[in-house]
Amino acid sequence: MSSAVLKRLQEVFGAAIVETHSQWGDDTAVVETARWLPIATFLRDDAACAFEMLSDLTAVDYPDREPRFEVVIHLLSLSKGHRIRIKTRVGDAEGDGAIVDTLCGVWLAANWAEREAFDMFGINFRAHPDLRRILMYPEFVGFPLRKDYPADRAQPLVPYRTAEEAGLTIDKVAPFGPLEGMSFARNDWTKPEL
């Protein structure tokens, strides 16, 4: 459906688009990690692409490959009604060096999704505003969705902490700050931004 978008990406970014494929109506482009942020910005801002919405950001672990991880984003254009999937490959066989630019500046929705990818796979997002674990607790060792994390390993129980003991500022305690959680419920829609 959006093979036109793939074509346009290849025209504009040339060799930075490592490979593309289309199957069952899903169009995918694998891109160079170094061009991750400019490509995302282009996909949002280009009039023919107009991907206003980041549906999902996640990662996949392929332990036999190098680079080992794929960071995947799924984009949706609300105005054009088309979708695309963009991937990039990062990380060596040990899982180190998995660094990719944050997309928080492009889509606000990337914030928590990147924290989840960091928490579960140990992928670092350069210049992320608040890269902390989101599901697991700070004492947790390792990254549980990596394929080499032992399936049945439980870790020691952690003590109870108040928000102060955890070092959380008030906007990190539910219902969270203006850019996190269901921010639309708190937005002032008379303002053009946010």
Partner: peptide, 10 residues
Amino acid sequence: SQRQAPVLKR
């Protein structure tokens, strides 16, 4: 969950 455990204990 492990993360909830301290809350349950409290």
